[in-house]
Nucleic acid binder design. Structure first.
Lengths: 184, 184
DNA sequence: GCATAAGTGGATTACCTACTCCAGTTAGGG
DNA sequence: CCCTAACTGGAGTAGGTAATCCACTTATGC
């Protein structure tokens, strides 16, 4: 691939990412191309169709999540690390609403993401289990509870991006109470 | 209005309601008209634009919510009645995903719904307050917590209608734990 | 009954979308 | 420096949308 083509590819992903955050994945290819200072043909040469762009943007975000989860795993204070991880993931959801339907429809189900999904799951479960034995996290808490929280947060962000952060933090309060062993 | 015209109006709302539940509000006016066995012109004569149909369908659902809340208010077991009400509202959300963005963008904000909103709010708050003094609901629980739960449920339903019911019930478990004074 | 206002269907318009095609441009190896 | 394969922009295509228009039909009050 020629160097200029590679630069354009990155500009397209950057433009798409920004527009997805601001407007949503319904934004038109024309606008994405314009935002990258690139013709529509250039865009469609690199990405065969619109879904390919959405996937590329999502994959970039996903890498950050996996890195967060991996880092949290090694913490020696699992309860704290778990909450920090959750908070980081949710903040990301608030900022990137477009991720929500990819989380639900691709990351959690498609076999294309099977490997990443299992890594992520293993990291989270390890953290939760250690938190439970440490007595910080309520027994019965599982990976699926975190998935539900992430799905809910993403869904809220998608529905109402403007108030997403505030609502997601409120949602987190309820889940923290539900996750915690100590009633407040 | 002529009697046949009134019949057609109801058929259009019924068709729209069914299609919104199955496909979402993105369904085309042509399909709504076809489902009502009516021409597209007939549809657009009754409802000046697409939003008017969406609003009409929502208003029909909303009346049911308000009735539920009103009935719950008179219960002499507020804690129970509150949970029953919440469960009824959430089940409705699962079945009518299209309501989600109207809840967020119209019912909770537009002054067109101000009167209904305040009635609903008063009913719910009365129930919550009685539940708190009865010692069944955790002090600090407010109307805004219920709103958040309904928004989350609606958002989930919109994002993934097929698994909505299951996810919403799961979500309710966490909120029940958070609402409750007794840790489980 | 029947006059007529109200109602109707569906072809049509205007517009927006994702995606294709191709004549012209440019990077970069030899 | 220059040749050529890679790359590019933007006009154009196909297809779907909401909304309009108008010749025709029907309910209903008298």
């Amino acid at each position: 691939m020629r160097a200029d083509a590679e630069r354009n590819r990155e500009r397209i992903i950057e433009s798409a990412s920004n527009l997805f955050d601001d407007i949503g994945t319904s934004v038109s290819l024309n606008d994405i191309a314009a935002g990258a200072n690139v013709g529509i043909a250039t865009l469609l040469r690199r990405f065969p169709d619109k879904q390919a762009i959405i996937d590329a943007v999502f994959t970039r975000d996903l890498d950050l999540w996996l890195a967060s989860a991996g880092r949290a795993r090694t913490s020696d204070s699992p309860g704290m690390a778990f909450l920090d991880l959750v908070r980081a993931l949710l903040t990301n959801q608030a900022r990137h609403p477009h991720c929500a339907d990819l989380v639900v429809h691709a990351f959690l189900r498609s076999k294309d993401f099977a490997e990443q999904r299992e890594t992520f799951r293993a990291d989270v479960e390890s953290l939760v289990n250690r938190g439970v034995t440490e007595g910080v996290i309520r027994p019965g808490t599982t990976w699926s509870d975190l998935v539900l929280l992430m799905e809910s947060a993403g869904a809220l962000a998608l529905l109402d991006p403007h108030h997403a952060e505030e609502k997601i933090l409120h949602l987190l309060e309820h889940f923290e109470r539900s996750f915690s062993v100590i009633p407040s």
